[in-house]
Simulated scan of single mutants.
Amino acid sequence: MSTPTSAPVSGGRLDASAGTGPAPQFDSGGAWTLNPKVALRPEPFGALLYHFGTRKLSFLKNLTVVDIVSSLGDHATASDALAAAGIGEADRALYVQALGALADSGMIVPRAA
């Protein structure tokens, strides 16, 4: 299994869903989803994420991360999505870090209740 990576082309900690302010702190115990302003395009290497609001482009270079991000809306929490993807405790921190980077860049956002 390769190490999960997401490489945003442009940085910043703006809340991409609102356009201003800090991005929400990632909590794997919370409900998350792909930002509605973001398109996910599968690629042989993983996927491209494009944010239409900020024009940020991110590369997901791990198919497992792509599957987790795609399934976030199907699970009550991000932790549930990680468990459903078969992520064990030994690898969990790496995947939580990858999801945190996506939250920081506004690619994933907290899901409304």
Results as ranks from 00 to 15, higher is better:
49 L>N: 04
88 G>P: 00
55 R>E: 15
10 S>R: 13
61 K>P: 05
85 A>Q: 02
16 A>T: 05
108 I>S: 02
21 G>W: 09
25 Q>C: 10
66 V>H: 01
76 A>P: 05
88 G>Y: 09
63 L>T: 09
58 S>E: 13
72 L>A: 06
32 W>A: 01
86 G>R: 00
3 T>A: 10
39 A>Y: 09
78 A>L: 03
72 L>E: 04
106 G>P: 09
69 V>D: 07
109 V>T: 03
47 A>V: 04
53 G>H: 09
38 V>T: 06
61 K>D: 15
5 T>F: 01
7 A>G: 15
77 T>I: 07
67 D>N: 13
59 F>R: 11
37 K>G: 10
3 T>V: 11
71 S>Q: 13
76 A>M: 10
15 D>K: 03
38 V>Y: 04
22 P>F: 15
88 G>W: 01
82 L>Q: 03
43 E>P: 00
111 R>G: 02
31 A>S: 10
35 N>Q: 02
36 P>N: 06
93 A>T: 08
111 R>S: 09
89 E>G: 07
39 A>K: 14
50 Y>T: 15
26 F>T: 06
65 V>M: 12
80 D>A: 13
19 G>R: 06
12 G>E: 13
18 A>Q: 14
14 L>Y: 15
44 P>D: 05
61 K>T: 14
38 V>D: 07
17 S>V: 09
84 A>E: 01
78 A>S: 10
102 L>H: 06
45 F>C: 11
55 R>V: 12
94 L>N: 12
84 A>P: 00
107 M>Q: 09
33 T>V: 09
29 G>V: 01
28 S>P: 15
88 G>L: 10
12 G>W: 15
69 V>H: 06
11 G>S: 14
72 L>Q: 07
9 V>K: 11
8 P>F: 02
93 A>N: 12
57 L>Y: 07
28 S>D: 12
7 A>D: 14
14 L>G: 08
102 L>F: 09
103 A>F: 03
6 S>A: 15
9 V>H: 13
88 G>K: 12
93 A>D: 11
4 P>V: 07
65 V>T: 14
93 A>Y: 03
44 P>Y: 04
100 G>S: 10
84 A>I: 02
42 P>C: 06
27 D>V: 03
92 R>L: 07
12 G>S: 11
70 S>A: 13
113 A>C: 08
97 Q>E: 14
10 S>M: 13
59 F>D: 15
81 A>D: 05
98 A>Y: 01
14 L>M: 15
91 D>E: 03
63 L>I: 03
61 K>L: 14
62 N>F: 00
19 G>Y: 07
112 A>S: 11
73 G>R: 12
92 R>E: 09
49 L>P: 11
6 S>R: 08
65 V>E: 13
89 E>H: 05
100 G>D: 10
111 R>H: 04
111 R>K: 09
66 V>W: 01
